[in-house]
Amino acid sequence: MFKNSLQSTPSIVVVALALVIAMAGILALVGGLNGRETATTPAGMQGKGRTAPVVTECFESREGSTSVTRVENAVPRYGYPNLKCSKTTQAVLWYGDPFDGTVPMGEMPDIRDGTRGDFAHAFVKPREAHLTYFNMGPDGCRTCHDGRTVPVPKSKSARPLAMHQDIVADSMQLQHGRGALWCLDCHSATDRNKLIDHLGNQIGFNQPQKLCGSCHGEAYIDWRAGIHGKRIGTWATGGKKRWWVCTECHNPHTVQANRFDPLLPEPPPPLPRGMRNANHERVGQGVH
C-alpha cells in the first residue's frame, strides 16, 4: 500500500530521500559524539601512551625458580614477543608462545592412570638451566663435589653444613619429611648432578616428578591426571600442553613452611571515582 503510493508520487519520494539523507547525517554526527568513531590518530595514541620501559628479565611462578628473558617478535605472525611480564613484580603474565624453551617430556613410568603412558604431547621446560649451583661450573655440582675438594660423605644422616645456607638455613633443621629426611635422601651422594630415590635410582634434575612422586603419590596421580599443577597450551584432552613440574612451583627445601613461597601481588584495581582509599574494607577485619 505504502509502496504503491511511493511509486505513484515522485514528490513524496524526494521528500523521503531528503529526510533519510538528513537522518543519516545526524546519525553519523551522533556516532562521532558517542565515540563510535574512535577518531584518535596514531600520533595521538603515542602521545597518550605511557613510555614505561619494557621489562625483559622476568621469572615464572616464584622468584628465583625459573628466570626467562623476553624476546621481541618471537611469533612473527602476530608480532608477539615470547612473553610479557609485570612492570611491578617482573612475574610473567602472558605467553606469546606457550612452548618457548620447552622440550618433550619423554618417557614416564606407566602406572595405568588416565594418561595410559601417552606423553607424546607433554612438554616441559628443562630445570637444570635454572639451578644456581648446578650452573657454577662446566661440570655442574661436580665442580666442587668431585670427591677430592669435597669428599663423598660416608653417612646419609644429618650433620651441620658449612655451605648452602641460602638453600637450607640450618641443615640440622631440614623440615621436609618432618625431620625424617635429609639432603642425601634425595641428592645422590656419589653424583651430585643427580637426584636419587629410595630405591637408588638416579634421576635427573629435569624430571623431579619421578622423585617427588615416589612419596607424594596422591599429588602425583592428580598431576598426571591434569588436576594438580599448571598446564598451558591447548585445552583439549590429549592436546599439546606444557606441563609445570614439581620444583617449578614448590621449593622442596622450604615446602614444609610454605607449599608455595609468599610473593608480592600485582597492583589493585584503581579506586572508583570519588573513593579516596579502601580503608572501609578493612573495618573490624570481618567483625563489623
Binding site: 609468599p262 610473593l263 608480592l264 589493585p268 579506586l271 579502601a278
Partner: peptide
C-alpha cells in the same frame, strides 16, 4: 576486600 595493597606478600 577488593583493593588489598600490593606491598604485602600474599
Amino acid at each position: 576486600q577488593n583493593y588489598y595493597a600490593a606491598d604485602e606478600a600474599v
